[in-house]
Design a protein around this nucleic acid. Structure first.
Lengths: 217, 217
DNA sequence: GTCTATACCCGGATAGAC
DNA sequence: GTCTATCCGGGTATAGAC
């Protein structure tokens, strides 16, 4: 609970539209989507409130754009990992590593979009559609791992929920400065694999295999 | 994502104040705290909006009461578990088991209170205070487990964050009907212990020892 | 304790000049 | 693309009768 400072980003030269997305994501994270007014966002960017409507047709459109960009990138990474193959443990490790690294590196703060009830609202159907794609891809990996005997015998849907919990925790605290000095993406992926692998002693070899393949860029 | 139905509770004979707390918690969970109006809550209870102010001085007071009850119960369970002793793995198992069972059993739906940015707002200082107590108790267990060599060598603060992620996932999905048929509290606690124990093979004996001690009632 | 009526504020969004 | 001015709806909360 020590002084949660935020990362700093050099925004010089960013177009106004990008600044709106950045500041909106941060205000959404701290005050929530509904707790953030379009006047708050405009003030953070340094423009007047109606000027935002030259870039976005509504406040909702800002949140949609943030969701679209993030979920598209995540799904693309997950698809590349699955296409590269290597077996469910390696694929899961590689995706978790990418996801946590992504959460730590992105200037946007997407907490409230995934943690709050925002995605449950009918207006955000596109985000839900992209999230379903993620669900299917992730469940496929877990199912293959269980079927192949790589993972412990566990309901794949249940395992996926626990994995989601760990990922959301990374999103939840990724923007804060209270992180450990070590390799957080590796620590997180290893934590999940220790819990899932039928033989936890395989974690080092999975890590090595994943590292050989590199990031799903 | 299959049909998330909600649990049903027999509320016959409940006093109006309790009905307000129940319906408010469920509306907060689905629409968010700010997305829920006092009119919504009153309509769900079956009274007029101003009648709520005979029971609570403000909408915020409703959320505070929900937080106070839940966090007080959780901290009490955690303190009893720690007082009973038995070693960090057993204590962690017992608390996680209690917490998940509690999330599945409570009629209140407290998702938005813990998942959204609500607790970050300055108005909810009491909730933050109670949550700090939880943080200290939980970190103490993890630190003892690492120091004693029961757990893998891991930054205790980092391990606690991952545990929090799993607990929050239980809160996030506990009110839904998409759960597995098996013993979810045990599955969740076992998942975490497999990831944390230096010797994952100890999970069965930890579970047995925890079961012998029973629930921290 | 519950009702009706209402005060009052603040939010999203539009109009139209520059 | 940004500004000022403004509309309108919906939100919290209070007043006061029953």
């Amino acid at each position: 609970m020590a002084a949660p400072r935020r990362r700093r980003v050099d925004t010089s030269g960013w177009p106004t539209k990008e600044l709106i997305l950045l500041e909106a994501s941060r205000l959404f994270a701290v005050r929530g989507y509904l707790g953030t007014s379009t006047r708050d966002i405009a003030a953070a960017v340094g423009i007047q409130q109606p000027s935002m409507y030259s870039h976005f047709s509504s406040k909702q459109a800002i949140a949609e754009e943030l969701l679209r960009r993030d979920l598209t990138a995540g799904n693309a990474a997950l698809e590349r990992v699955a296409a590269d193959g290597g077996g469910a443990p390696v694929e899961l490790y590689r995706y978790l590593h990418w996801e946590v690294a992504h959460d730590l590196a992105t200037p946007f703060d997407l907490r409230s979009l995934y943690l709050g009830p925002l995605l449950d609202q009918s207006e955000f159907a596109e985000g839900r559609r992209l999230l379903k794609r993620y669900d299917a891809l992730m469940r496929s990996i877990v199912e293959r791992g269980v079927a192949a005997g790589d993972f412990v015998e566990i309901d794949p849907q249940f395992a996926k929920r626990l994995i989601d919990g760990v990922i959301l925790e990374a999103i939840r605290t990724g923007a804060l400065d209270n992180r450990v000095d070590d390799d957080e993406p590796d620590l997180t992926a290893s934590f999940v694999l220790r819990a899932l692998l039928a033989k936890p002693s395989r974690v080092p070899s999975v890590r090595t295999a994943a590292r050989t393949l590199g990031a799903p860029s």
